[in-house]
């Protein structure tokens, strides 16, 4: 699993550094932009596109699955829709929906990176969203482990 470093720089408060993991539904690339929360129901075909200028990074707090028994789109398609609406990256807070990690494992080559965050790091991030008007986010790729060099290949 490819780890992600998430640097959150609120407008008037000390920055914080969090950790997440890249979901393989999308490409593993760094990204940066203004942080905007998206309600889970905002990422549906029939929901309104807010026409925010592009170049933002969206955070979606996922609810427990039983609270949205038939979601309008799969999480992969929600991530794709967010990208089409201008998001440079999509952060999913999966604290209350661990099944999201499996749903976002199957590669689909989405251009905008998708990062999963959970637990204390997610709580800190949502805390920033709740208490601040604006924040900037930098997503970096934590150096992956080097490619293992095998001397002998066992067939």
């Amino acid at each position: 699993v490819q780890k992600a470093i998430i640097r959150v720089i609120p407008l008037k408060v000390e920055p914080i550094v969090l950790e997440g993991e890249f979901a393989s539904v999308a490409e593993v690339t760094p990204a940066e932009g203004k942080l905007l929360q998206s309600h889970p129901l905002s990422l549906c075909n029939t929901s309104e596109d807010e026409h925010t200028e592009s170049g933002f990074i969206t955070i979606v707090k996922l609810e427990q699955p039983d609270r949205d028994p038939n979601p309008c789109l799969s999480l992969a398609n929600k991530a794709k829709l967010a990208g089409e609406r201008g998001a440079r990256a999509i952060l999913f807070d999966i604290t209350d929906d661990e099944s999201a990690a499996d749903q976002l494992r199957k590669p689909r080559g989405l251009s905008q990176p998708v990062v999963l965050i959970r637990g204390h790091d997610a709580e800190l991030l949502m805390g920033v969203v709740n208490k601040n008007r604006e924040a900037h986010v930098k997503i970096e790729v934590k150096e992956p482990p080097a490619w293992p060099d095998y001397d002998v290949w066992i067939l």
Binding site: S38, H39, R133
Partner: peptide
């Protein structure tokens, strides 16, 4: 829920997404 506001409405009411700064709630 705390972070997302309304997730579903009582019958016959309209669901609207409201943006307040970074937040977006139902």
């Amino acid at each position: 829920s705390d972070y997302n506001g309304c997730l579903s409405c009582k019958p016959r009411l309209f669901f609207v997404l409201e943006r307040i700064g970074m937040k977006q709630i139902g």
